[in-house]
């Protein structure tokens, strides 16, 4: 059984993610212990909260170098969800400009709709258009709806973009660099197809 660590840094919906991981057949553990993180088959960085607060919490727990080592040097599968995806960027702008983990070069910026009729945050089910093939998409049809709730999005080089969605602009909803993945949506809250996505991630672990 694959051991997947869900990083507990004080502000994520860690239990929901862990439950979903377990439902997908992996052994999920919620922890911030560096040793457990180093021994995991895969890591998930969940996310609810603001960028600056998220980085501050990771730093407080001494996790930044551990996560970078595991993801970049050991090339362990890594999945950032929502804020977790944002924290994979080089720079964030939520709650002041802050450095991210820089696992995927990019910048996190706020949606800037042209009209105030477009409601922010972007909350609800939105479809994801696949931009390229990837094992993480196994058995998930193009334009499947996933659950989103966010005001910021990840801007990066086209090469990292696996899927996009459209709200007030087209934005990256799935990104990948090697085995580092990020999803703007919440697979753990996207029912059957969300669980399928997590299962695909676990298969990579």
């Amino acid at each position: 059984m694959k051991h997947v660590v869900v990083i507990d840094y004080g502000i994520g919906n860690v239990d929901s993610v862990c439950r979903a991981v377990s439902r997908c057949g992996a052994h999920g553990v919620v922890t911030d212990a560096p040793e457990a993180i180093m021994n995991a088959d895969g890591l998930i960085l969940p996310g609810v909260g603001s960028f600056a607060e998220g980085m501050a919490q990771l730093e407080k727990r001494g996790l930044i170098s551990v996560l970078k080592q595991k993801a970049q040097e050991e090339k362990a599968p890594f999945l950032g969800i929502c804020l977790g995806m944002h924290l994979m960027a080089s720079v964030g702008t939520e709650g002041g400009v802050a450095q991210g983990l820089d696992l995927i070069h990019g910048r996190v910026v706020k949606f800037s709709p042209d009209s105030n009729k477009i409601k922010i945050p972007h909350i609800g089910w939105n479809d994801v258009k696949w931009r390229r093939r990837d094992p993480i998409l196994c058995d998930i049809p193009d334009h499947t709806d996933f659950y989103f709730v966010h005001s910021y999005h990840f801007q990066c080089d086209e090469a990292y973009i696996v899927g996009t969605s459209s709200y007030c602009c087209d934005f990256a909803s799935v990104i990948a660099h090697g085995k580092c993945y990020g999803t703007q949506f919440h697979p753990e809250k996207s029912q059957r197809m969300g669980l399928r996505f997590l299962k695909n991630f676990i298969e990579l672990c």
Binding site: R133, L137, D139, P141, D142, R196
Partner: peptide, 14 residues
């Protein structure tokens, strides 16, 4: 609205 597809409608994309 989000319409739920029944099981089996997914195609292999891997």
């Amino acid at each position: 609205v989000r319409i739920i597809n029944e099981m089996g409608s997914g195609h292999a994309s891997c």
